[in-house]
Design a binder for these strands. Structure first.
Length: 787
RNA sequence: GCCCGAGUGGCGGAAUUGGUAUACGCGUUCGACUUAAAAUCGAAUGAGAAAACUCAUAUGGGUUCAAGUCCCAUCUCGGGCACCA
């Protein structure tokens, strides 16, 4: 046979897989043998299909899932590994604005390209379950989900100050603002007062927080989510205003420090400020508040120097009865607690700094109240999820407004609300999306029932022109995977009961946003009786990034992007690429691309090929036992123990997601077989163990040896040798090695005398040992002596 | 500032429960094959030493028969949050 030619082999097997569809998940009811297979449902975070095609980072992410899918499949599981595309979003829309190509067309092209590339990697994907969030058949159900939340009051409108990206001309969720910059275009965000749609995620704040500990997720992600939710327990205390009947409600985590409260501070946006100013202070306070709003959040963050202004009014400290001044300052945030604080400069650094700057009293806390002041209150750092986007290429919000501006749900029977075709995709300056330009589409008749007569009439209304945050589309796709073609339901309850929750989810991003939102929706739909579980993801693998060879992030502008298709086409093939990305290091750490190491992995696969297909001139085969056709072997065959050891190690390593060491173990195995010769059983085992990583080559090997791909079992009895090495230490230092019969491991006295007979050990043992310690699993004997 | 991680050869990394530190790969050196090169195969490869050994897992202490692993302190790097009362 010829040399290892990956491109030829890969094309052959990809054609076979395309035709035979071996990666289709079995419907539970259709289980062939009658005997039910256990299920495994695995998925990666579905990608945004960009015009650039697959990235090596995608390949790492998808290959992890692929290794597991193939491993579980080889172990007899009914595996569901679907695939999808997160296709709504700004890149397609901005491309449309630039080129005039509609986002729909551009998206179709990109998805097609992605699919072709994915197939060239030989992925174990059930292609009959492909989904796409901008497909009307998909987004009608996104709209349905919205309506369920709307019905329960968990989708609501609120006028408030929100993050606004002036370049993308849309509002953003808190989770999409990174250091005061837009997560997509990087421009500085502003605050804008707008009426917007929200999902009431705070309703589930406690459960989202309390159930984190039970998740089999990386601690890093769990901590980030805990911090994001940021629960604080404290109290709300009313402070009476000296000059009028109003009260200022403050939130504090330390109500016990109230004796040290010497002034109050309100956020510049606080509604009570108007009633607190007098003729002397009015203009200064108004100017301060207006400036604070104008200041970008960056400025507010960068300039930690305290600023503020006195309102002219006083409040009464309920503990001391003292009159204390009320100030306005931007270090108090309107969105947290009550937007007002009692300042305790003796106990709080920020308050002290403020008091020192404005010469306000600092009073030592000498007394603690017997009965606590105020009402116990819990607050959260997390805010409700802002879901309106003033952009064209998103899922339309299924809402219309009557002539009084009241929001009405579009009836479920009228879904989907399709995205209208427009000529100009640009949002306008008014803060409305391009949907507002589809004048015919805007008009809709919605049935309204008169509460008195009970009569239903059709009323002409105007459609909502905002679209949904893309994260809404990805908050339920894992459930759609269970029944992606269902025309009657967002998800089919029987299929959900069988497949879900997801066993393993793998991704490298969205630690708080997506992974929090999907938990929120899961709890909501569980409360609705639509899901039989409260956490959607059993196990989360959060993989690291792949960086350029210099360790820096790959980016088009730096010109250091490695294209996975180039790696394949250069002659290495997909198996080398996949195996290399699993070998590059622990899956959860960032890694730098190393072109030479790719060559090393290719050499390894080449050696695998040679072992099976090459003539004796290259590989020294076992002179007595080697035969590719011989299926039964004696236990005394020289590589039997090694084979069983390798099976155990590779199995254990895949189970604990240590893909890099699983591969190094296979390398050792192959190196050893090169030296000692291989039996047919050894080679079949190699093919089986290799298949999750290099499925094309492994399929070729197994076909050649007429073997199936069932995962091999190991037998403990082969893992114990007749003769074992016992390490001898003196005071913890290695001084000798004994080769002894395995029976001696039971006889510590015998080992001790053998050790003391060793000339090298003798040199270090001048007096009889005080004690000896024998560690059986490590086969280590430590002699403790006093010399 | 606060909260997490992580520091091991020339490089990526291994050591899973406190028990033989440096597996595997890259690189380098030498050898075989070749007119030659590539490819391939074999050998060596933490530092010092001829060797016995000694010293090495960021730094300094500690616990232990035994520490890369546990404890305390310090330094460096990475990530997250950041005026959240």
């Amino acid at each position: 046979m010829n040399r290892y030619n990956p491109l030829e082999i890969e094309e052959k097997w990809q054609k076979i897989w395309e035709k035979e569809k071996p990666f289709r998940a079995l419907e539970k009811s259709k289980s062939k043998t009658g005997e039910e297979k256990p299920k495994k449902f695995l998925a990666e975070m579905f990608p945004y299909p960009s015009g650039a095609g697959l990235h090596v980072g995608h390949v790492r992410n998808f290959t992890i899932v692929d290794v597991l899918a193939r491993y579980y499949s080889q172990n007899g599981y009914n595996v569901l590994r679907p695939f999808g595309y997160d296709t709504f979003g700004l890149p397609a829309e901005n491309y449309a604005i630039k080129t005039g190509v509609s986002p729909k067309v551009a998206t179709e092209t990109n998805v097609k390209n992605f699919r072709t590339q994915l197939k060239r990697l030989g992925y174990f994907i059930d292609w009959d379950r492909e989904i796409n969030t901008s497909d009307p058949e998909y987004y009608r159900w996104t709209q349905w989900c919205f309506l369920q939340l709307f019905k329960k009051g968990l989708a609501y409108q609120k006028e408030s100050y929100q993050w606004w990206c002036p370049v993308d001309q849309t509002v953003l969720a808190n989770e999409q603002v990174e250091n005061g910059h837009c997560w997509r275009c990087g421009s500085e965000v502003e605050k804008k007062k707008m009426k917007q749609w929200f999902f009431k995620i705070t309703e589930y704040a406690d459960e989202l927080l309390d159930s984190i500990d039970s998740l089999d997720w990386p601690e890093k992600i769990k901590t980030m989510q805990k911090n994001w939710i940021g629960r604080s327990r404290g109290a709300e205390i009313d402070f009476e205003i000296a000059s009028n009947a109003e009260k200022v409600k403050v939130f504090t985590t330390r109500p016990d420090t109230i004796f040290g409260a010497t002034f109050l501070v309100l956020a510049p946006e606080h509604p009570l400020i108007k009633s607190l100013v007098n003729e002397n202070t009015k203009s200064a306070v108004e100017k301060y508040c207006a400036d604070a709003l104008k200041k970008s959040e960056i400025e507010r963050q960068e300039n930690k120097e305290k600023t503020g202004v006195f309102t002219g009014s006083y409040a009464l400290n309920p503990a001391t009865g003292e009159k204390i001044p009320i100030w306005v300052a931007d270090y108090v945030l309107i969105g947290y607690g009550t937007g007002a604080i009692m300042a305790v400069p003796a106990g709080d650094d920020r308050d002290r700094e403020f008091a020192e700057k404005f010469d306000l009293p600092i009073k030592k806390i000498t007394e603690v109240p017997d009965k606590p002041f105020g009402e116990p209150k819990t607050t959260y750092r997390m805010r409700d999820w802002l879901i309106s986007r003033q952009r064209y290429w998103g899922c339309p919000i299924p809402i219309a407004y009557d002539k009084n501006g009241v929001a009405h749900a579009i009836p479920e029977s009228e879904l989907p609300v399709l995205i209208p075709e427009v000529d100009d995709y640009r949002p306008d300056n008014s803060g409305r999306s391009a949907l507002s330009k589809a004048t015919d589409w805007l008009k809709v008749k919605v049935p309204v029932t008169d509460p008195e007569t009970g009569k239903t009439t059709l009323e002409e209304m105007t459609r909502e022109t905002d679209t949904l945050d893309g994260y809404a589309c990805s908050s339920w796709y894992l459930w759609r995977y269970a029944s992606p073609k269902d025309k009657k339901n967002a998800w089919n309850p029987d299929q959900i009961a069988y497949w879900e929750p997801l066993d393993v989810y793998c991704g490298a991003d969205h630690a708080v946003a997506h992974l929090l939102y999907i938990r929120f929706w899961c709890k909501f739909f569980a409360d609705e009786g639509k899901l039989p579980f409260r956490e959607p993801i059993e196990k989360l693998l959060y993989n690291g990034y792949i960086n350029a060879p210099d360790g820096k992030k790959m980016s088009k502008s730096k010109g250091n992007v490695i294209d996975p298709l180039d790696v394949i086409d250069s002659g290495y093939g997909a198996d080398t690429l996949r195996t290399y990305e699993m070998f590059i290091g622990p899956y959860d750490l960032d890694a730098a691309w190393n072109p030479r190491s790719v060559g090393g992995v290719h050499r390894f696969l080449n050696r695998c090929w040679n072992l099976v297909f090459q003539e004796e001139s290259v590989v020294k085969k076992n002179p007595t036992e080697f035969s590719c056709t011989k299926k039964t072997l004696s236990d005394s065959f020289p590589t039997t123990a090694l084979r069983h050891k390798t099976i155990k190690k590779v199995t254990d390593d895949i189970e604990r997601s240590a893909f890099n060491t699983a591969i190094s173990c296979l390398m050792e195995y192959v190196n050893e077989l090169y030296k000692s010769g291989a039996s047919a059983e050894d080679l079949i085992t190699l093919g089986k163990l290799l298949k999750p990583f290099a499925p094309h080559l492994a399929s070729e090997i197994l076909e050649h040896l007429s073997a199936d791909d069932s995962w091999p079992a190991y037998d403990e009895k082969y893992l114990v040798a007749d003769t074992v090495e016992v390490v001898v230490q003196v005071n913890g230092k290695l001084r000798g090695r004994l080769s002894v019969s395995v029976d001696f491991l039971e006889d510590e006295e015998k080992l001790k005398s053998l050790a003391l007979a060793d000339p090298n050990v003798k040199k270090f043992v001048k007096t009889p040992p005080l004690k000896t310690i024998f560690v059986k699993p490590a086969k280590l004997l430590n002699l403790v002596v006093k010399n």
